[in-house]
Simulated scan of single mutants.
Amino acid sequence: MAVVKAGVVVLDCAEPEKLAEFYKGLLDGEETDLSANRVEIRGADGIRLAFRRDVNATPPSWPRPENSLQAHLDFLVDDLDEVERRVVSLGGRPLETKGAPGPHEERGYADPAGHSFTLRLEPSTAPKQG
């Protein structure tokens, strides 16, 4: 029997309630747990995220080359332009990044607290024609 039953990605931020609202809007999610210093949400597809209060939190500085990207979130989407409009309307912002190499088109963003995340086109599972 597995000892660990589930995992939750937890982002530190100064205002967990506000950051939870951003991700609830982005992921069509709902709040599942709330305490004085932590809010957890579950997205429509089952992804779980939590936001922990850290009054001294400072936004990450990625993508500056002198700092490593320690962690970020990737979200698979069907339409980059549509989801970008949603990100911006919720208070997120695009990050200036050069086109990433590889088979997937992707774009980088920061949430309202400065955490980076990536929207990536979900690879097509349809067989190639011809």
Rank of each mutant, 00 (worst) to 15 (best):
A2L: 04
V3L: 05
K5Y: 00
A6I: 06
G7W: 00
G7C: 03
V8Y: 03
V8Q: 02
V9A: 03
P16Y: 00
E17K: 08
L19M: 02
L19Y: 03
A20F: 00
K24M: 07
G25I: 11
G25K: 03
L26M: 07
D28F: 03
D28G: 09
E31K: 08
E40Y: 02
G43S: 02
G46V: 11
R48K: 14
L49S: 11
V55H: 07
V55R: 12
S61K: 10
P63R: 04
P65N: 02
E66S: 11
L69C: 12
L69N: 12
L69P: 12
D74W: 00
L76H: 09
V77S: 04
D78M: 03
D81H: 06
D81I: 09
D81Q: 11
V83I: 15
E84Y: 07
E84Q: 14
V88R: 05
L90H: 09
G92A: 10
G92K: 05
R93K: 15
R93V: 15
L95H: 03
L95M: 10
E96V: 13
T97H: 01
T97A: 05
K98H: 07
G99V: 14
H104Y: 08
E105H: 09
R107K: 14
D111R: 13
P112C: 09
A113T: 13
S116T: 14
F117A: 11
L121Q: 08
L121E: 04
E122W: 00
E122Q: 11
P123V: 08
P123Y: 03
A126E: 06
P127Y: 01
Q129P: 01
Q129F: 04
G130R: 09
G130S: 12
G130T: 15
